[in-house]
Amino acid sequence: MDTEKTDKTPMYQYIMKDIKQKIESGELKPHDPLPTQIDLAKEYNTSEITSRRALSDLVQEGYVYRIRGKGSFIQENPTAGSGSRPIRTIYFAHRNQIDSFDHPFFGDMFDGIKEVCEENGIDFHLWNIGGNYELPDDPQAGIVLLTTKEDFDLSRLSAWQQENRRIVTVHFYYPHLGIPYVIVDNLTGGYLATQHLLSLGHKRIGVILTGDSLMDINQEFSLRLQGYRLALSQHQIAFDPELVAFMSGGKERLEMGAEGFRRLMKLDNPPSAIFATSDYKAIGAMEAAGEMGLKVPEEISVMGYDDFKVSKYTYPSLSTVNQNTKKLGQRAAEILLFELKEGQSQILKDEIVPILVQRNSTGPAPKKAPQAGN
C-alpha cells in the first residue's frame, strides 16, 4: 500500500480517509475485520496512539464497530453514523464528592475508564460540577456522571439531556429519563456472600446493615439485603428479622460492625456466621469477636463486602465481595465512545456482576452455637 501523504492532514485523519475510501470502493465490505491498532500503526508507519485515535473516530462516526476481545469490524451501513461528533475527552463529573474517592469503588472505576481512554487516545479528567451544576464547556465531551442520593437536582439531568450532552450515569440511575447507566448488581453481590456462607453449612446468618431501619437504608444496601433473602429462600430457610442489625451512620466505620456483632451475639440463638455489608463493618465485627473470646472462623464466620486492599492482610484474611468496578468504569467509557448514538431512543444500560473473594474469615459451621467468653 502506498502510505505517502503529501498534504498537512494529520495522520489519524489520513488513515480514516483511506479506510473510508476502501469502504466506498467495496474493497472493505460489511463485517470485514480491520487490522489491530498495532498492525494498523505498522501499515501506515505511525504510532499506536495515532492508529487508536483513527479507529476510535471511525467507531464514533459509524463506520466501524468493536467487539471486546475480537477486534474492529466494518459496519453494515457505514454511512449511517456519519456527522457524529467524536469524543476527545471523558470527564468523571461529580458534585463536591472528591473526599469519597479514596474508596476502592472509585479508584478501580477510574482505572477502568482510564484504560479504555488510553486505548483510544482519549483524555480523562475528574470534574466537579459544584453547587452551580456546571458541566465542562465542551459539547463534544463524554460525561460519566455520579449523582448523589439525596440532594441532586434531577431537573439538571433533563436539561442536559435536552442539550444532547453525552452522559452515562454510574452507581445511581434514572430509567424514566432514558439516560444510559452502568451499575453494580448489588442484589447478586448479597446473594453471592450469603450463598457462600450457606455452602459452608451455616443456617443462622446474621446481617449488619447501615441505616436506621428497613425503610431507611439506601439503594445499594437494600439490594444486598434482597440478595441475602433470596439465597436463604432458595435453601428453604425462613427470613428472621432478629438476625438483621441496623446501624445508624453515614460513612462506614469499624464501630458499626463491632456494635452490630455484639448485638447479634446477645440473641438467645445467635448466628454462626455474619454477613457485614461492608469491609469496614466486617473488620469491626472480627475485632469484636476477638474481644468476646470467639475464634474466627472456627466459632464464627465473618463475610465482608467491597474488597478493600487491606482486607487480604487482616488476620484472618477477610472473605468478601469485590464489586468489579474496574469493569464498571470500562463499560461506562465504552458506551460513551462506541455505543451511544445521537437520536437513539433505546436506553443503554449494563449491570456489572460482583466477584466472590474467598479467604480465611469464613469456614464450616461449628457443631455448637458460638458462646462468647465474656
Rank of each mutant, 00 (worst) to 15 (best):
Y133C: 05
W160F: 13
K114C: 04
S82Y: 14
V116K: 00
L154K: 10
Q75K: 10
S100L: 15
L146S: 11
S84T: 14
E163S: 08
I113W: 01
T148E: 07
Y173W: 07
N128Q: 11
I122T: 04
G69V: 07
G130A: 13
C117P: 03
D99C: 11
F124P: 02
R166Q: 11
V144K: 03
Q97W: 14
R156M: 09
G112P: 00
S158A: 12
I74W: 02
F106D: 00
R88K: 14
Y173A: 00
E150V: 11
H171A: 06
T147A: 02
Q140Y: 10
G130E: 09
A80M: 06
E76N: 07
F101I: 11
S84R: 11
L135I: 12
I143L: 05
F105N: 03
D123K: 14
N96H: 15
V144F: 03
R85F: 06
Q161D: 11
C117E: 00
R166S: 03
D102C: 09
S158M: 15
I167L: 06
I87H: 03
R68I: 07
D102R: 14
T147R: 01
Y133R: 07
F73A: 01
N77S: 06
N120Q: 07
R88G: 04
H94N: 06
F110C: 08
I167T: 02
F124N: 02
S82V: 13
P175V: 12
R165F: 09
W160T: 09
T79M: 13
G81T: 06
S84N: 13
D153R: 10
D138M: 03
E115H: 12
P86W: 06
A80Y: 13
K114T: 15
E134Q: 15
H125R: 14
L126N: 02
Q140L: 10
I98C: 05
N164M: 07
F152Q: 05
A141F: 02
G112T: 06
I143C: 03
D123R: 09
K70D: 06
G71W: 00
L146F: 08
D138C: 01
H94Y: 12
N120A: 00
N96M: 10
R85A: 10
G130V: 12
S82E: 14
P86G: 02
H125V: 04
S155G: 07
S82G: 08
D153T: 12
P104A: 05
R166H: 06
W127Q: 04
E119Y: 02
G81P: 02
E118F: 06
D108F: 15
I90H: 00
F105P: 00
P139Y: 09
E115Q: 12
L145S: 04
Y174P: 01
